[in-house]
Design a protein around this nucleic acid. Structure first.
Lengths: 210, 210
DNA sequence: TAGTCTAGAGAACGAACGTTCTCCACGGAA
DNA sequence: TTCCGTGGAGAACGTTCGTTCTCTAGACTA
């Protein structure tokens, strides 16, 4: 069957999704400025007219790519944390839920297409020139900090927000270090971050301690 | 006096320095791909012929910019740590020298031209395409980790290299967070990282057995 | 002074980019 | 069948970039 099903009007969602899928794969893998609209059209399998009809300019597509990735990234993280800590049926310790964040990072770092934080990369590339990219990046990091604070709040830590900020530094540092150091060292990086996080949380006893 | 003093041969150092100064200012402030060779020539005050005679291609200039910045950045950091911890004349505690690193970060974040880590930015922009940029970035982060390990070694920490890796994550995370969050929050970011570092340095060090 | 070399200023070139426009094939309505 | 609107394929446009080439002014040598 062809892809032009029963589109309600304007741009069918299918086209938008296909464009964003191609954009995410190419932008994340090679950088935003290294991917031209023509190559993107080919990868998405749409015409230039449809491409520009869906996203009037490249920076609109860039921001949409980052916004969608932000939502999916945080949803994946939250799903992993929930799945990892609801096994017993009983409510898990807040420390375990916080540490699960770093387990998820470890599995992400091991993915073959891992290339660091899409937002940090985009910020390094366009943050100085594009206010939109800078804003999306700020929002993403702020949302991550808020999520960590939500995880930390049920604990008996005296300052959950401060703990969340500290852990957020570890998360960003680990993502960056894993991206730069490359494949073999990235698993070790995740464990290093997890150990440090455990120390900050105060759950040194539960640290695997390799 | 003119700039063509007693050059031994080829390109006088003055020209090379002027080019690198302009490149560092522009590349760091606006990104590498956002600065053209023509604008760079104007900023450096040299002719295109001299520019290409000194650096045969843009990527040579990019790598030279990163290499020089790496050397100066780490020298500045080491000088600050030495100056901050040699006041008494007696040898300072290793923990204080490690924490001085984060004090230096705080002063750096407050600089008006602070725009994050030049290497992380360059890696996000060109790391996927340029092996040279990726290598310089790896070397820079590796050298930072080695320096932190040197600072940690005199302590009674059971694993100075592991502590150095943990602190390196905090350093990278703090630089990134400070760059993204912008001016007002960056001072707070440095203090957050310093607090976390103190916990990591002290927590495990006071653990009786490992 | 005549000749030669160097280097500056910037024009020029080829490629690539983001974006728009042209042409044509196709499908539904009358 | 004829008309019309939609959309695909890709040519075209204007700009920008990295890099090279041309022209010329000046300094040094014999």
């Amino acid at each position: 069957m062809t892809a032009h099903g029963n589109a309600p009007e304007g741009v069918p969602d299918d086209v938008r999704t296909r464009i964003l899928d191609a954009a995410e794969r190419l932008f994340y893998e090679r950088g935003i400025q290294a991917v031209g609209m023509d190559e993107l059209r080919t990868a998405a399998g749409v015409s230039l007219k449809r491409l520009y009809g869906t996203f009037p300019a490249k920076h609109d597509l860039v921001e949409a790519y980052l916004r969608r990735r932000d939502a999916r990234w945080r949803a994946d993280l939250a799903a992993y944390v929930d799945a990892a800590t609801e096994a017993g049926g009983a409510v898990a310790a807040p420390a375990d839920r916080l540490l699960a964040v770093f387990d998820w990072l470890g599995s992400w770092f091991a993915a073959q297409d891992f290339r660091g934080c899409a937002f940090i990369n985009a910020y390094g590339e366009l943050g100085a020139t594009s206010e939109g990219v800078a804003r999306v990046t700020r929002d993403h990091k702020q949302a991550l900090r808020a999520y960590l604070a939500d995880l930390a709040r049920p604990s008996n830590h005296p300052d959950p927000a401060a703990l969340a900020s500290q852990l957020a530094l570890l998360v960003d540092g680990a993502i960056t270090a894993a991206a730069i150091s490359g494949e073999p060292a990235s698993a070790h990086t995740a464990r290093t971050a997890r150990t440090a996080a455990a120390a900050l949380i105060g759950a040194i006893a539960t640290t695997p301690n390799i």
